[in-house]
Design a protein around this nucleic acid. Sequence first.
DNA 1: ACTATACTTAACCATCTGGTTAAGTATAAA
DNA 2: TTTATACTTAACCAGATGGTTAAGTATAGT
Lengths: 109, 109
Amino acid sequence: MVKYSQHQLDLAFGALAHPIRRGILARLSTGEASVAELAKPFKVSAPAITKHMKILEEAGLLSRKKLGRVHRCRLEERRMKQAQEWLAEHRKFWNDKLDALERYLKENP
Amino acid sequence: MVKYSQHQLDLAFGALAHPIRRGILARLSTGEASVAELAKPFKVSAPAITKHMKILEEAGLLSRKKLGRVHRCRLEERRMKQAQEWLAEHRKFWNDKLDALERYLKENP
DNA sequence: ACTATACTTAACCATCTGGTTAAGTATAAA
DNA sequence: TTTATACTTAACCAGATGGTTAAGTATAGT
């Protein structure tokens, strides 16, 4: 069952594969922000942030509009949800296994 | 709140960012398999599969033991769960937004 | 008009990814 | 013992990632 474009999932998971980009997404999950605000916690150059933004944007996880010279950024929840759902599709199996694993670990500490 | 090594998450999400590797994981979620069995659905060379296996293994998503000349592969549920949980940590926010989005889309088709 | 701010683009570099073919190792089967 | 099977390693290549510095564009403030 292929619900979403494999390529979109590639881009979404690839975008999640870097701590700066996950940090940006985490920050955005609490509300919109400018590029400068998103960049603040990280000690890399501005162009490095621009590149991360581009990867997030091309993955469809983030969108923005320019207000004056400030770029107002927001999460794109739909694409984010698709990544979540790929994992969720398999969660039943994994959870079955995890339940067994956790029982085992409880009984064999 | 950083529950897991950022680096481990990098590797896990990076490993999820390729359709062949997601296919391998999906197959493994239904039970153990040999490398040849995992490779079967994909029309790439054996060394290409070896590399995908290595990426999955280094991400901690997959383990194996050698029985004779066959490598028996299985999912590593714990690491898989860590990736799931990073998303889950943010799901509350996202779901709030998604709920709002879906209400909006229902009312503004 | 000038200067500072917010951000991007260009050019460069090292490393990783994702594929190939050819060759190698270890086990099983004949 | 010879051969086939299961898989890996080596060597190569193209393209993407992730960082840098230097320079550019557009808007805002003085």
